[in-house]
Amino acid sequence: MPERRSTILHADLDAFYASVEQRDDPRLRGRPVAVGGGVVLAASYEAKRQGVRTAMGGRQARALCPGLIIVRPRFDAYVEASKAVFELFRRTTPQVQGVSIDEAFLDVAGLHRIDVPPLQIGARLRDWVRDEVGLPITVGVARTPFLAKVASRVAKPDGLLLVPPDAEEAFLHPLPLEQLWGVGEITAAKLHAYGLWTAGDVAALPQSVLTGTLGPAAGRHLYAVVHGQTPATVITGRPRGSIGAQRAIGHGPHEDEFVRAALLGLVDRVCRRMRTGHRTARTVVLRLRFEDYTKATRSRSMPQATASGEQIAAAALHLLDSAAPLIRSRGITLVGIALTGLESDEFYQMVLPLDGPDHSGLDAALDGVSARFGTAALRRASLLRTGDGFAAPQLPD
């Protein structure tokens, strides 16, 4: 039997958006900061300690934390910081599985004969991220990605924690169920109703009880989780299946044109990222969140995969129009867009523009301007607020 070793790192940037804002503005350091507007997108740990949470309304956040500083999001800055951190991940090992913009799994098993032990690799990675990018990061080290993820949750913020293979149950079983990756509020509440509060409580039950309570798939998964039977490999090289962005627009009411403009701004951003990655998309997904915190999605697939901002914008607006009755009855606080069915543009099948002009040259021109002058150089006029933009004097005839 091969030796069991803790060689998986889960690296997770702490309060990522808020940490970038505190890094870039010294006046925010050590103070409670929330990123967002009407809705909190991210909160610093100074704000979290006073009860501020992601997806909380701005008014409620200020009531909990009177000294809260709310700053508008700067997504370009977050993307650049993420790229810099992922370069450090890849400097550590080629075996990197990105989970989101601010976290990844790293498999360092292949380095055991040529590098320091995994715990020291994690410590070095934290030093690199702090010194070269200026951000705090927490690293969990364990035998499986699941355990490494839980270890980083326990070690936050700005921590480092190793779970040795012979101490997995001692680490895992005392933890509250909410600490387990994949156990959400609904599942936790259902288990609490049966007097189950920790991973150890669940581990004492046979699998049949869990499948009967939670259903076959969820029951088997939770049984595997509490007994350390989750997969032990990091998945790399898998093509990205989707790309998306969302914007919290706060509590309304909102004018229809404002919501449409917000959606089109997201379409521009996502399409630019997709074309930069040399991909095309076949399906457009609209995501909405309402005043009552319920959510809805709508999707539309196109006959051919495309990278055209015009076609994707048209599909997104069609989906928004189809959701208009829900928006009017429930109010809307968040709008998002995702592109799925991604394919390489290497063998992109062009479609003749028989029904109108070909705007692919416009997409290329806009991408070129963004690449040279930054993504903030161009913005739809409908997204400008009073005082934004510039004025140029008209020349006499």
Rank of each mutant, 00 (worst) to 15 (best):
A217I: 04
G244V: 07
G241I: 08
P206S: 03
P231I: 09
Y223I: 04
R240V: 15
Q246L: 11
A199S: 01
R247W: 09
Q246S: 14
G241Y: 05
R220P: 01
L222R: 09
L196Y: 09
I243V: 13
T230A: 12
L210N: 01
Y194M: 09
G200A: 10
S242A: 11
K190F: 04
A232M: 09
G237W: 10
L222W: 06
L222V: 08
I235P: 02
L222Y: 10
D201G: 00
R240I: 14
T233C: 13
G219H: 03
I249S: 01
I235E: 14
A217S: 02
G237Q: 12
T236G: 04
L191K: 01
L191S: 02
G244P: 05
Y223D: 09
S208Q: 10
K190V: 10
H192N: 11
W197T: 09
A203I: 10
T198D: 05
H227T: 06
W197K: 15
Q246C: 09
G215E: 06
T233N: 13
P239V: 11
S242R: 08
Y223C: 05
A248P: 00
G212L: 08
R220G: 09
D201K: 03
V202S: 00
Y194T: 04
L214R: 00
G228H: 09
R247N: 13
A189Y: 12
H227W: 11
